[in-house]
Amino acid sequence: MIARSFRALDTDVLVETDDAEVEGAVATLTGNYPPARAEPSLHYRLEGATGVLQRDDETLRRGAPSIDLALIADTDPQDQVVRRAGESFLVHAAALAGRDGALLLVAQSGGGKTTMTRALLARGARYLTDEASAIDTEHRVRGLPRTFTLEGPDPEGLAPPEAIGRIGTFRYRPVGGGVSMYRVVLTSPERIVHEPVPVAAIVVLQYAPEEPSGLTRMPSAAALQTMWGQNRRADAAGLEIAIALAGRFAVHRLVTHSIDQGCADLAKIWSL
């Protein structure tokens, strides 16, 4: 068995596999996470020969082709560590660190979080997450610093992925058949922030091609409902934190039609 352990949010995770190719893919997918600090409390076992994916004592899949195991196993730890995170507002939001603190970019899937995160990283920001943020009672954010998946051509105006890190690859089976190379960007380690960063600004990214671009301040009730609508865990403690954030911070809504314009608008309320 080959073992790899890492820490994500508050959880130490151990992944074991008997398949060297699967281990290589897991190492690539989880390469942004820091090493585990304690005895892992979340265990995965991936068996290449039998296609078994096991979480702790539960078998999640059996008979999966070994080439698929790493990708199948990628999302489950993300969901699990979010569920296990300590008292916090867990929100579907990107987070970046700058001079004054963290910028939270809240958006639904496809709303531009990853694109804006890569654009801001290329301009000098540091990386917490492009997907899941945990904000604690002191309004400090920690992130799930997953790798960026490269699919298709990048949007116009986005710096090449090498501007923020190195590209990792492994084999996978795309929908439609055949075997292809899965490509991700592993952020340069010195640009990843694993410690909590105080929130400095909150922005809701809005895909609205029919509207003029720009930043507008949201009423606190609308800000709360929008942020809460993107929660990853609905509990009363998280709601308390979300309410406090909506009251303490001027939450802005950003409509943008270009990466450069979006970054320029963000610079009005948050410093890299």
């Binding site: 606190s220 009730a221 609508g229 929660n231 609905a234 709601l239 309410i243 909506a246 009251g247």
Partner: peptide, 22 residues
């Protein structure tokens, strides 16, 4: 039922399904 107030005075409840209702 969790009932909270926003800083500007509006009331929020957290529904059993997890929605924040202002």
């Amino acid at each position: 039922l969790p009932i909270r107030e926003l800083p500007d005075g509006e009331t929020v409840v957290l529904s059993p399904s997890g929605a924040a209702l202002v």
